[in-house]
Amino acid sequence: MTLLAFLIFVSAVLLFIGRADPTAFEKSRLWVLDGIAPVLETVSKPVMSAIDYIGRADDLVTLYEENDRLREENLQLQDWREATIRLEQKLERYQALLNVQIDPKMDFVTGRVIAETGGPFLRTFVVNLGRDQSIENGYAVIDSSGLIGRVVTAGKEASRILLLTDLNSRVPVFVEPEHVRAILSGDNRNSPFLEHLPKNYRPQVGSRVVTSGDGGLLPPGLPIGMVTQQQPGGQFRVALFSNLSQTDFVRVVQYEFPKVSTDASGPQPEGRDQEGAAKSETLSSSTSSGAATQAADSSLRNDLVE
Protein backbone atom coordinates (compact mmCIF):
# COMPACT_ATOMS: atom_id res chain seq x y z
CA MET A 1 0.00 0.00 0.00
CA THR A 2 2.94 2.28 0.75
CA LEU A 3 4.39 1.54 -2.68
CA LEU A 4 1.02 2.28 -4.29
CA ALA A 5 0.78 5.67 -2.53
CA PHE A 6 4.40 6.43 -3.48
CA LEU A 7 3.79 5.63 -7.16
CA ILE A 8 0.64 7.78 -7.22
CA PHE A 9 2.74 10.59 -5.77
CA VAL A 10 5.49 10.02 -8.40
CA SER A 11 2.88 10.11 -11.21
CA ALA A 12 1.49 13.40 -9.87
CA VAL A 13 5.01 14.85 -9.67
CA LEU A 14 5.66 13.81 -13.30
CA LEU A 15 2.46 15.58 -14.32
CA PHE A 16 3.50 18.76 -12.52
CA ILE A 17 6.96 18.65 -14.09
CA GLY A 18 5.45 18.18 -17.56
CA ARG A 19 3.06 21.06 -17.01
CA ALA A 20 5.76 23.40 -15.73
CA ASP A 21 8.18 22.55 -18.53
CA PRO A 22 6.59 21.04 -21.67
CA THR A 23 10.05 20.14 -23.01
CA ALA A 24 11.06 18.23 -19.85
CA PHE A 25 10.39 14.80 -21.36
CA GLU A 26 11.31 15.64 -24.96
CA LYS A 27 14.38 13.39 -25.06
CA SER A 28 12.52 10.50 -23.40
CA ARG A 29 9.68 10.90 -25.90
CA LEU A 30 12.15 10.78 -28.80
CA TRP A 31 13.80 7.70 -27.35
CA VAL A 32 10.47 5.91 -26.84
CA LEU A 33 9.23 6.94 -30.30
CA ASP A 34 12.33 5.52 -31.96
CA GLY A 35 12.07 2.35 -29.89
CA ILE A 36 8.40 1.71 -30.54
CA ALA A 37 8.35 2.72 -34.25
CA PRO A 38 9.45 -0.71 -35.63
CA VAL A 39 6.78 -2.43 -33.49
CA LEU A 40 4.08 0.01 -34.64
CA GLU A 41 5.14 -0.40 -38.26
CA THR A 42 4.94 -4.20 -38.00
CA VAL A 43 1.58 -4.15 -36.21
CA SER A 44 -0.04 -1.50 -38.41
CA LYS A 45 0.81 -3.10 -41.77
CA PRO A 46 -1.61 -6.07 -41.66
CA VAL A 47 -4.34 -3.88 -40.15
CA MET A 48 -3.95 -1.23 -42.85
CA SER A 49 -3.99 -3.98 -45.51
CA ALA A 50 -7.21 -5.38 -44.04
CA ILE A 51 -8.84 -1.91 -43.94
CA ASP A 52 -7.68 -1.31 -47.51
CA TYR A 53 -9.15 -4.66 -48.59
CA ILE A 54 -12.52 -3.84 -47.00
CA GLY A 55 -12.42 -0.41 -48.62
CA ARG A 56 -11.84 -1.99 -52.04
CA ALA A 57 -14.80 -4.32 -51.54
CA ASP A 58 -16.94 -1.24 -50.83
CA ASP A 59 -15.57 0.45 -53.95
CA LEU A 60 -16.70 -2.46 -56.14
CA VAL A 61 -20.33 -1.76 -55.20
CA THR A 62 -20.14 1.83 -56.43
CA LEU A 63 -17.78 1.19 -59.34
CA TYR A 64 -20.07 2.39 -62.19
CA GLU A 65 -21.31 5.52 -60.41
CA GLU A 66 -17.75 6.34 -59.43
CA ASN A 67 -16.56 5.90 -63.02
CA ASP A 68 -19.22 8.27 -64.37
CA ARG A 69 -18.45 10.83 -61.69
CA LEU A 70 -14.72 10.66 -62.44
CA ARG A 71 -15.28 11.08 -66.21
CA GLU A 72 -17.30 14.22 -65.57
CA GLU A 73 -14.75 15.51 -63.09
CA ASN A 74 -11.96 14.81 -65.54
CA LEU A 75 -13.61 16.99 -68.19
CA GLN A 76 -13.95 19.83 -65.70
CA LEU A 77 -10.35 19.39 -64.58
CA GLN A 78 -9.07 19.63 -68.15
CA ASP A 79 -10.69 23.07 -68.43
CA TRP A 80 -9.22 24.03 -65.08
CA ARG A 81 -5.80 22.80 -66.18
CA GLU A 82 -5.79 25.11 -69.18
CA ALA A 83 -6.89 28.05 -67.04
CA THR A 84 -4.25 27.23 -64.42
CA ILE A 85 -1.45 27.06 -66.97
CA ARG A 86 -2.45 30.46 -68.37
CA LEU A 87 -2.60 32.00 -64.89
CA GLU A 88 0.67 30.38 -63.83
CA GLN A 89 2.47 31.86 -66.82
CA LYS A 90 1.05 35.29 -66.06
CA LEU A 91 1.93 34.95 -62.39
CA GLU A 92 5.52 34.01 -63.24
CA ARG A 93 5.76 37.05 -65.51
CA TYR A 94 4.45 39.40 -62.81
CA GLN A 95 6.60 37.84 -60.12
CA ALA A 96 9.65 38.38 -62.30
CA LEU A 97 8.47 41.95 -62.93
CA LEU A 98 7.96 42.65 -59.23
CA ASN A 99 11.01 40.67 -58.16
CA VAL A 100 8.87 38.60 -55.74
CA GLN A 101 10.96 36.36 -53.49
CA ILE A 102 8.41 35.23 -50.95
CA ASP A 103 7.85 31.57 -51.77
CA PRO A 104 10.01 29.16 -49.79
CA LYS A 105 11.68 26.30 -51.55
CA MET A 106 9.58 23.16 -51.05
CA ASP A 107 10.38 19.48 -51.26
CA PHE A 108 8.22 16.55 -50.27
CA VAL A 109 8.88 13.23 -48.58
CA THR A 110 6.11 10.63 -48.55
CA GLY A 111 5.50 8.32 -45.61
CA ARG A 112 2.89 6.05 -44.09
CA VAL A 113 0.82 6.53 -40.95
CA ILE A 114 1.87 3.79 -38.53
CA ALA A 115 -0.04 4.89 -35.42
CA GLU A 116 -2.77 7.27 -34.38
CA THR A 117 -3.82 8.65 -31.03
CA GLY A 118 -7.52 9.33 -30.91
CA GLY A 119 -7.88 9.35 -27.12
CA PRO A 120 -9.97 11.75 -25.09
CA PHE A 121 -7.73 14.77 -25.68
CA LEU A 122 -5.11 13.95 -28.26
CA ARG A 123 -5.20 13.98 -32.03
CA THR A 124 -1.84 12.81 -33.38
CA PHE A 125 -0.41 10.51 -36.03
CA VAL A 126 2.94 8.74 -36.04
CA VAL A 127 4.52 8.43 -39.51
CA ASN A 128 7.48 6.32 -40.60
CA LEU A 129 9.63 9.34 -41.51
CA GLY A 130 12.24 10.91 -39.28
CA ARG A 131 15.54 12.73 -39.12
CA ASP A 132 17.03 10.07 -41.41
CA GLN A 133 14.76 11.52 -44.11
CA SER A 134 15.71 15.10 -43.09
CA ILE A 135 12.43 15.68 -41.25
CA GLU A 136 12.52 18.40 -38.61
CA ASN A 137 10.13 19.70 -36.00
CA GLY A 138 7.66 22.22 -37.37
CA TYR A 139 7.45 20.88 -40.93
CA ALA A 140 3.99 20.93 -42.48
CA VAL A 141 2.27 17.61 -43.25
CA ILE A 142 -0.25 17.27 -46.07
CA ASP A 143 -2.22 14.48 -47.68
CA SER A 144 -3.70 14.41 -51.18
CA SER A 145 -6.35 16.99 -50.19
CA GLY A 146 -4.57 19.52 -48.02
CA LEU A 147 -2.80 20.33 -44.76
CA ILE A 148 -3.41 17.88 -41.90
CA GLY A 149 -0.92 19.09 -39.27
CA ARG A 150 2.73 19.61 -38.46
CA VAL A 151 5.66 17.62 -37.06
CA VAL A 152 6.06 18.06 -33.30
CA THR A 153 8.50 15.27 -32.47
CA ALA A 154 10.96 14.20 -35.15
CA GLY A 155 12.60 10.92 -34.14
CA LYS A 156 15.30 9.10 -36.06
CA GLU A 157 12.99 6.99 -38.21
CA ALA A 158 9.53 8.10 -37.06
CA SER A 159 7.82 11.39 -36.26
CA ARG A 160 4.75 12.48 -34.37
CA ILE A 161 2.32 14.73 -36.23
CA LEU A 162 0.08 17.13 -34.32
CA LEU A 163 -3.18 17.19 -36.28
CA LEU A 164 -5.09 20.42 -36.96
CA THR A 165 -7.94 19.10 -34.82
CA ASP A 166 -5.76 18.62 -31.70
CA LEU A 167 -6.32 20.78 -28.65
CA ASN A 168 -2.83 22.28 -28.93
CA SER A 169 -2.91 23.08 -32.64
CA ARG A 170 -2.76 26.77 -33.62
CA VAL A 171 -2.13 27.66 -37.26
CA PRO A 172 -2.06 31.17 -38.79
CA VAL A 173 -4.38 31.23 -41.81
CA PHE A 174 -5.95 33.44 -44.47
CA VAL A 175 -9.69 33.33 -45.12
CA GLU A 176 -10.17 33.78 -48.84
CA PRO A 177 -11.09 35.58 -51.00
CA GLU A 178 -10.71 38.64 -48.72
CA HIS A 179 -7.34 37.40 -47.45
CA VAL A 180 -8.36 38.00 -43.85
CA ARG A 181 -5.91 36.83 -41.20
CA ALA A 182 -7.06 34.44 -38.45
CA ILE A 183 -5.81 31.63 -36.27
CA LEU A 184 -7.16 28.11 -36.86
CA SER A 185 -7.45 26.36 -33.50
CA GLY A 186 -8.21 22.75 -32.69
CA ASP A 187 -10.34 21.62 -29.77
CA ASN A 188 -10.46 17.85 -30.42
CA ARG A 189 -13.63 18.19 -32.49
CA ASN A 190 -13.56 17.08 -36.11
CA SER A 191 -13.59 20.65 -37.41
CA PRO A 192 -11.18 23.24 -36.01
CA PHE A 193 -12.45 26.81 -35.52
CA LEU A 194 -11.31 30.31 -36.50
CA GLU A 195 -10.01 32.63 -33.78
CA HIS A 196 -8.86 36.27 -33.76
CA LEU A 197 -10.98 37.27 -36.73
CA PRO A 198 -11.32 41.04 -37.22
CA LYS A 199 -14.29 42.58 -35.40
CA ASN A 200 -17.51 42.69 -37.43
CA TYR A 201 -16.06 40.32 -40.02
CA ARG A 202 -18.19 37.32 -40.87
CA PRO A 203 -16.61 34.87 -43.32
CA GLN A 204 -18.95 33.48 -45.92
CA VAL A 205 -19.92 29.84 -45.72
CA GLY A 206 -17.75 27.96 -48.24
CA SER A 207 -14.82 30.39 -48.12
CA ARG A 208 -11.49 28.65 -48.56
CA VAL A 209 -9.00 28.69 -45.71
CA VAL A 210 -5.28 28.44 -46.49
CA THR A 211 -2.08 28.80 -44.47
CA SER A 212 -0.84 32.39 -44.25
CA GLY A 213 2.80 31.59 -43.52
CA ASP A 214 2.78 34.18 -40.71
CA GLY A 215 5.47 33.71 -38.13
CA GLY A 216 7.52 31.52 -40.46
CA LEU A 217 5.73 28.49 -39.06
CA LEU A 218 4.25 26.91 -42.19
CA PRO A 219 4.62 27.74 -45.88
CA PRO A 220 1.88 30.05 -47.19
CA GLY A 221 -0.95 28.93 -49.46
CA LEU A 222 -1.41 25.33 -48.35
CA PRO A 223 -5.13 24.50 -48.64
CA ILE A 224 -6.83 23.56 -45.36
CA GLY A 225 -10.59 23.56 -45.71
CA MET A 226 -13.81 25.53 -46.08
CA VAL A 227 -15.74 27.67 -43.60
CA THR A 228 -18.98 26.06 -42.42
CA GLN A 229 -22.12 27.51 -40.83
CA GLN A 230 -21.61 29.65 -37.74
CA GLN A 231 -21.94 27.57 -34.57
CA PRO A 232 -24.35 28.44 -31.76
CA GLY A 233 -21.40 29.73 -29.69
CA GLY A 234 -20.57 32.21 -32.46
CA GLN A 235 -17.58 30.26 -33.73
CA PHE A 236 -16.85 29.67 -37.38
CA ARG A 237 -15.63 26.13 -37.93
CA VAL A 238 -13.59 24.87 -40.88
CA ALA A 239 -14.44 21.59 -42.59
CA LEU A 240 -11.07 20.12 -43.53
CA PHE A 241 -10.43 19.11 -47.14
CA SER A 242 -8.63 16.04 -45.77
CA ASN A 243 -10.52 13.07 -44.47
CA LEU A 244 -8.35 12.15 -41.49
CA SER A 245 -10.07 8.81 -40.97
CA GLN A 246 -8.91 7.69 -44.43
CA THR A 247 -5.42 9.15 -44.33
CA ASP A 248 -2.84 6.41 -44.74
CA PHE A 249 -0.08 8.09 -46.75
CA VAL A 250 1.11 11.61 -46.01
CA ARG A 251 3.67 14.02 -47.42
CA VAL A 252 5.96 16.06 -45.21
CA VAL A 253 6.72 19.44 -46.76
CA GLN A 254 10.38 20.36 -46.42
CA TYR A 255 10.92 24.06 -46.95
CA GLU A 256 13.24 26.90 -46.18
CA PHE A 257 11.99 30.40 -45.62
CA PRO A 258 13.94 33.19 -47.28
CA LYS A 259 16.27 34.75 -44.75
CA VAL A 260 16.51 38.52 -44.45
CA SER A 261 20.02 39.53 -45.36
CA THR A 262 21.79 42.40 -43.67
CA ASP A 263 23.98 42.66 -46.74
CA ALA A 264 23.62 45.81 -48.85
CA SER A 265 22.60 43.69 -51.81
CA GLY A 266 19.33 42.86 -50.02
CA PRO A 267 17.63 39.62 -49.07
CA GLN A 268 18.66 36.44 -50.86
CA PRO A 269 16.43 33.41 -50.45
CA GLU A 270 18.38 30.48 -49.09
CA GLY A 271 18.59 27.41 -51.25
CA ARG A 272 17.46 29.08 -54.44
CA ASP A 273 19.22 28.27 -57.68
CA GLN A 274 21.85 30.43 -59.24
CA GLU A 275 19.60 31.53 -62.06
CA GLY A 276 16.90 32.69 -59.66
CA ALA A 277 19.45 34.51 -57.56
CA ALA A 278 20.93 36.18 -60.61
CA LYS A 279 17.50 37.43 -61.64
CA SER A 280 16.73 38.85 -58.22
CA GLU A 281 17.17 42.47 -57.41
CA THR A 282 16.99 44.13 -54.03
CA LEU A 283 13.60 44.16 -52.35
CA SER A 284 14.01 47.82 -51.53
CA SER A 285 14.34 48.79 -55.17
CA SER A 286 11.22 46.86 -56.11
CA THR A 287 9.17 48.28 -53.23
CA SER A 288 10.34 51.79 -53.99
CA SER A 289 8.97 51.56 -57.50
CA GLY A 290 5.41 52.00 -56.23
CA ALA A 291 3.98 53.02 -59.57
CA ALA A 292 5.25 49.86 -61.26
CA THR A 293 3.83 47.73 -58.44
CA GLN A 294 0.43 49.38 -58.67
CA ALA A 295 0.37 48.97 -62.41
CA ALA A 296 1.25 45.30 -62.16
CA ASP A 297 -1.32 44.79 -59.39
CA SER A 298 -4.13 46.34 -61.38
CA SER A 299 -3.05 44.40 -64.45
CA LEU A 300 -3.11 41.18 -62.42
CA ARG A 301 -6.55 42.01 -61.06
CA ASN A 302 -7.79 42.59 -64.61
CA ASP A 303 -6.39 39.23 -65.65
CA LEU A 304 -8.14 37.51 -62.78
CA VAL A 305 -11.42 39.26 -63.63
CA GLU A 306 -11.08 38.09 -67.21
Binding site: V43, I51, E116, F125
Partner: peptide, 8 residues
Amino acid sequence: LIPFGLVS
Protein backbone atom coordinates in the same frame (compact mmCIF):
# COMPACT_ATOMS: atom_id res chain seq x y z
CA LEU B 1 -2.36 3.02 -31.31
CA ILE B 2 -3.22 1.06 -34.46
CA PRO B 3 -4.47 3.50 -37.12
CA PHE B 4 -8.07 2.28 -37.39
CA GLY B 5 -9.13 5.72 -38.65
CA LEU B 6 -11.03 6.60 -35.48
CA VAL B 7 -9.24 9.92 -35.16
CA SER B 8 -11.94 11.89 -36.95
